[in-house]
């Protein structure tokens, strides 16, 4: 099985009013959804790298970005 990475999927403005529909679409295109951030219109989940291009092509998706690390400054 291909290794999975965590991605932040930002949902397009026109689709944020129906996040559950967006989540269903993302799941059917390979995203294992971990968190749905309803206020921000973002979904966090895991997917193999080879599915990212497919996820980025969905109408409901504004961007797909790899998770980064941060530290106290």
């Amino acid at each position: 099985m291909a290794s999975q990475r965590t991605f932040i999927v930002t949902i397009s403005e026109t689709y944020t009013s129906d996040m559950s529909a967006a989540v269903t679409q993302l799941e059917s295109h390979g995203l294992q959804v971990q968190q749905v951030l309803g206020m921000l219109g973002q979904v966090i989940g895991q997917a193999p790298d080879e599915r990212v291009k497919e996820l980025k092509g969905l109408d409901c998706v504004q961007s797909v970005d790899s998770e980064q690390q941060y530290k106290a400054l």
Partner: peptide, 8 residues
């Protein structure tokens, strides 16, 4: 330290 998932 933390990640995007935690901060968002």
């Amino acid at each position: 330290s933390g990640t995007d998932s935690m901060i968002l």
